[in-house]
Design a protein around this nucleic acid. Structure first.
Lengths: 348, 348
DNA sequence: AGGCGGTATTGAAACGTGTCAATGGCGGTG
DNA sequence: CACCGCCATTGACACGTTTCAATACCGCCT
């Protein structure tokens, strides 16, 4: 009959109101507090919404409320399965509260982290979960000053007086790896670290050292540190040469990698040289990402509760959003060693 | 001196204007068309912005312009490295134009895909790149009707008269796998598929069959199909039993998996049974995700240009956004077989 | 001096929504 | 019958921007 789809001008709440023969305020009520509006008109409005297929404009809504209803998750590397599993946890919990999650990738670069923070501030995001590059929490603090509640996840540190945080005990993780390797008779261990200065790597290394010291082994003599440019498989592969070296008689019998990606790279590098774990070198990783259980031999690794990390972070954030006078919490998980085939007793 | 940080009310463009002694319009001009404003006042305004650390409110801006400046990327599974690599491509190209990318995860569920579409429509997103669940393009079409330009990526199909699309030739991919396996002397091949009815799997299978038929092998006799519940490693692992079975004398000498995740699962499952590729079974995957080159033996697989897919999709979208009367394009890539260690000549 | 052209700035009007005090209608009670 | 209270609905305003026609300013030419 009539040109039902006037694609010309987008349909707004007013068009719906006109069609239903009510005022705009009533339509808004139908949308946001349906209990306040009588059965009859509610139905009329709903029909009008259907017929015009009206979809509400969040710009208007957010402008009015001063807040958007999505939260930001700033992640260090979308291609690393560790982070995507964390993201799952965050998403699932956020969904319970009807919050949308926008995933921002800082790619380990602080300029991109800054851009992400700016974006979230401009959108007046409801909140943010941030895994900071290099433990640089400045952007998180800035966000909070802008009124965007932010929770710190996994890296970096701020006092519980400034924000909630959830993390995993890297010291314990390093120590667990140490105990495992000692139990297998390894006393020459290389720690394959990421870029220099990464607080996370440093702590895991320290855990390793403390674990050794605990049983009377001198960490200085037993462990050697090799740094890589990035925490990915390629770097691990390239580092194999250097890991295996170390002077005559100084070849390590085990390597503890700061990261599963590195460890997977090492495994590959070994294979390319006709060597393999655990017979030529025991290999321990960190994180327990999905591929760790897929390679052969399986990667022995310090497992982090990835999904739970995400859930916990989002829960803390929700807590802060709902409870106006809320006191910051600090959740701390303890990692757990998963033994697979890449480690074995030292036969040398 | 004065309480410089009145966290009370958020600072808006008007506060900046007041501080700089100009009108709001001028501030807006400084932000958006700096060339129209005189050197002197521009500097004054910029100083005011600094001093108040004003950050602009995108709700207001978007409300006015009727469009937001972020685009949505709807992805089937954030934990699958295939999709995250695609996401990288999309992000990188979007960044060139200053567009933000919000990553939505449909987790292969059509209700979540619908929610994502709704969200993007409500935000009046500048555009969307969609990888549809089950090839269900209804949401994409709905988005377009709502005025959100959408590009179809990798799955599903719509005529080029309704939207741009980028895809990879699955038929050619299947055929490439076929040729490779035939060349190695395999004539009993199992195709390990995903859930029934996935158009993508079907086409790859058909490619396999056509490749066989090409050299005079009867596909009906040579290939057997096994379905799994999901396209992930766990399903692949569980399917090993069924793959290996198939009646006496009917044990396949090779398996072609619809997906690298499945293939990696199969490799693992083989290992658990004391078997291994390629001696007991040649294994071919599809996608060439990062772990495929990390396992030992390396996974022979049909490589898709993941990053390029993302780039291409975003380029098409940008084209559509910039050029008002634009004609839809259809970009099609051809996959390339990557031979690694998981396949070898058939010795039976 | 008056007028002209150009540039820098202003003021007001939108954009689509949510809120809230005010209004209208209606049934019930004194 | 007048009054009250209740509920459903309305109307107007505010949110922070951008835009655009209108204005003010200034120097220059006639």
């Amino acid at each position: 009959m009539e040109p039902s789809e006037r694609a010309d001008r987008p349909v707004g709440i007013n068009d719906v109101a006109a069609r239903a023969g009510v005022s705009a305020g009533t339509v808004s009520n139908v949308l946001n507090r349906p209990e306040r509006v009588s059965e009859a008109t509610r139905r009329r409005v709903e029909r009008a919404i259907e017929e015009l297929d009206y979809v509400r404009n969040s710009s208007g809504r957010n402008l009015r409320s001063g807040r958007s209803d999505s939260i930001g998750l700033v992640v260090l590397d979308v291609t690393n399965p560790f982070f995507t599993e964390v993201a799952q946890g965050v998403e699932d919990v956020a969904a319970e509260d009807g919050l949308a999650v926008v995933l921002l990738n800082s790619a380990e670069r602080s300029d991109r982290q800054r851009r992400s923070a700016r974006l979230l501030a401009e959108q007046r995001a409801a909140g943010a979960v941030v895994m900071p590059v290099d433990g640089d929490t400045a952007d998180l603090l800035w966000l909070r000053k802008q009124g965007v509640s932010g929770v710190l996840l996994d890296r970096g540190d701020v006092g519980p007086e400034v924000a909630c945080s959830v993390s995993v005990d890297n010291l314990a993780g390093g120590a667990a790896a140490a105990r495992h390797l000692i139990g297998l008779g390894h006393e020459r261990i290389t720690f394959l670290s990421g870029p220099e200065g990464l607080e996370q790597c440093r702590t895991r290394l320290q855990g390793l050292r403390e674990g050794l010291a605990e049983v009377g082994i001198d960490p200085e003599a037993a462990v050697r540190v090799v740094h890589t440019a990035q925490l990915n498989a390629e770097s691990g592969e390239k580092a194999v040469e250097e890991v295996l070296a170390g002077g005559p008689g100084r070849r390590p019998t085990a390597v503890f990698c700061a990261n599963d990606q590195l460890a997977l790279g090492v495994l590959k590098g070994l294979g390319e040289r006709g060597l393999s774990a655990p017979s030529d070198l025991s290999v321990v990783g960190y994180d327990d990402v999905a591929p760790a259980s897929l390679v052969h031999p399986g990667l022995t690794t310090v497992a982090q509760p990835k999904y739970e990390l995400g859930c916990a972070a989002m829960r803390l954030l929700l807590g802060e959003l709902h409870d106006p006078d809320h006191t910051h919490e600090r959740v701390r998980y303890t990692p757990e060693l998963v033994v697979r085939g890449s480690t074995a007793v030292n036969r040398r």
